[in-house]
Every structure is written in structure tokens, then in C-alpha cells.
Design a protein around this nucleic acid. Structure first.
Lengths: 171, 171
DNA sequence: TACCGAATGTTATAATATAACATTCGATTT
DNA sequence: AAATCGAATGTTATATTATAACATTCGGTA
């Protein structure tokens, strides 16, 4: 086994949350799905996915590029964007449109369209399936006689954890 | 009165829709709101708003730059981005996150956060207030204990008009 | 007149993303 | 084995989107 890609990651998420498990589940699911679908989760694609899963924060493409260079010396923008395209096509990551950034998807294989709660303080992104919202949305779209290709539902603000930390620290 | 900024615009929207009225209402509302709020809808800002309202399509910043140059010879990227920043702050336009583009807001002054239906065929953007969706969304966000700063709800697909046109033409 | 703040002018560059063509490599065919 | 093919990657160049930083203008007012 090689040095894991997350060897020197940011551990801010470690409290109250087994991130090793998040990562191993996400990677395991990704590997299985790719086999089932007959598509290749190549080393580069796997490394990019692993780097994205280093945290629950949205990550920028060029940040991934910097971080993959020690592993893939030849890496160029196209290296990253191609891997990202693949991972998005396979529903393994979300593109966060409002940040031009990317985050792992924990619902791969199930329905992929989720509500994203994006913390402006810690940059972590929480996925929620939000069935009531999706139901109301389907109704609305049907009323508009609109044929859906894709949905992006992105809420920016302050997550519960940060709200607590901030109020605890400053007031 | 000077030559209107939309003098040579794309008339594809003209069928069944009085666009002159859209524009005059939007600009009138913008002017009033800016007076009430004590902010300046300067000539540049007004021109950018007018250019955006040239159609219901999402427009790119550099496209606006090209289109404003005949009117503002000195225009540079900052000219446009500053005007866009102002118009967004004032709720007079929407930034379409998933396109890095901008579209006029017809709900200025009322609640500004709307569902955007973005046609991948004609690029027109329809705003819908979608109260049931917003209600469900508020519930969901409350359950997540998340403090909202802003929302982006963007649906891509094919609008009713295009769906009809396409089926009529090819099938 | 001197000063201030808001808006704009101006130059430069950062950050994000794609196009286009070359190469590699494993699988399949010949 | 040689020829071929397609998927993935390498490589170079460039397009697109956005901001930083400092200068200037200009109306209001101390």
C-alpha cells in the first residue's frame, strides 16, 4: 500500500465524525460502481477522487492540480478537468456551481441530485436529499412545462457547527 | 431620448410577449428603487442593466463588455464587473451561477430569491417564485440548523417553447 | 479652498477552463 | 508478431472569467 493521498490533510473535521470511514465508503462505492458500469476508475481518477474526499470542503480544480503533482508529475489542467468530468458523469462528485469547485458525493448510485448546504465559514458542504423540496420542485417544474436535464440547489450560509463555535468564541 | 441600447437586439422572444414592456417596467422599477434607497443608478449601471434586459437570455460579462463599448469607449472588465456587482447588490439582476452569466430580475424589490429555469436550447431564463418549493426549502434548512445567506436554485433543461418547436420541426 | 467619498479609469494579472494534436497502451484482429 | 483501434493520457497553447491595485474625476461640504 502506498502513502494515502490524505496523509497530510486538514483534520478540522475529525471531531465527532469518522472521516476514514467516509473516505473508505466513498472510494469503495466508486470502485464497485465503475466495475458494474464497465468504466475505468484509473489511477489518476482514483487519486483525484481521493483528494476530493480528503475533506468535506469544496475543492478548486487548480488546488487539486497542485495536490496531485507530487503523485503525478506530468499533471496539467487537462489532467484534472478530465478526471473531474469523468467523476461528475459517473455521479461520484458534485460540481458546486456557485464556487466553481467540487465535492464528493455520498449518494453515488442512488439519486444524485441533492440540496447542497455550503458553509461560508468552514467551506464544508453538506448534501441533503430533501425529499419534500424535491417533490415541490418537481411539481413546480411540471407546472412550468419544463423538461429537466439537471438541477443545482445551492444554499450558502453558516453551518450549525460554525454558528456554535462563533457564538461560543465571541459572545 | 438617445438610441435605445436594444436597438439591434435579437427578436426571437417577440412572439407572444411584449418585450418593450418588460424592459420599461424593469428599468422603471430599478430607477425608482435606486432613488428610494439613495443609491446611484449611474449611466454605466443603467446601460449595463438595459443591455442585460435586451433579452431574457443569460448574458456573459465579456459579452456585455463588447456590447457596451460603442456607448462607453473606455469600458474595461472592471467597468462591467463593478456595474454587475452593484446590480446584484440591489437585487436588480440574478447571477446565474451555473453559467457564469447574468439575467434581469423581474421581482426586484419583492423577494429576490427565485427558482431559475434555464433553457439549454434557447438560453432564456424563467424566474419563478415557487412558494411551495421555498417553503419546503426553509423547513429543510431549519432542520439542518443552517443559517442562510443566499440561495441559488437553478434548473437546466428545455423550456416549453423549445420543446414544442423541436417536436414540431423534427417529428 | 481643501478635503472626502463614491464612481470610474487604467494597467496588470490571477483564476478557471478548453481546444487541438501527439503519444501511450492494452485489447483485438490479422 | 504486426497492424489496427479506441480509451486514456501527455503536451502545448490559448480562451474565458474575474480581481487587485493604484490613479483620476467629480460633486458635495467642512
Amino acid at each position: 500500500m502506498t502513502t494515502p493521498a490524505h496523509a497530510n490533510h486538514d483534520h478540522s473535521h475529525s471531531a465527532g465524525h469518522d472521516h476514514e470511514k467516509c473516505v473508505s465508503e466513498a472510494l469503495g462505492t466508486a470502485e464497485q460502481l465503475c466495475v458494474v458500469r464497465g468504466v475505468q476508475l484509473t489511477p489518476i481518477r482514483h487519486q483525484v477522487l481521493e483528494l476530493i474526499w480528503d475533506s468535506h470542503k469544496a475543492v478548486k480544480a487548480y488546488e487539486l492540480l497542485d495536490r496531485i503533482k507530487p503523485l503525478q508529475n506530468a499533471a496539467k489542467p487537462a489532467t484534472i478537468y478530465r478526471a473531474l468530468d469523468f467523476l461528475i458523469e459517473q455521479g461520484l462528485i458534485h460540481r458546486v456551481e456557485s464556487l466553481n469547485a467540487f465535492v464528493g458525493c455520498s449518494c453515488s448510485g442512488h439519486q444524485h441530485e441533492q440540496l447542497l448546504l455550503i458553509c461560508n465559514n468552514c467551506q464544508e458542504v453538506e448534501e441533503r436529499s430533501a425529499p419534500e423540496v424535491m417533490q415541490a420542485l418537481s411539481q413546480e417544474i411540471k407546472q412550468a412545462d419544463f423538461i429537466v436535464h439537471s438541477k443545482a440547489i445551492e444554499i450558502h450560509g453558516i453551518c450549525a457547527k460554525c454558528a456554535q463555535t462563533m457564538s461560543g468564541e465571541q459572545g
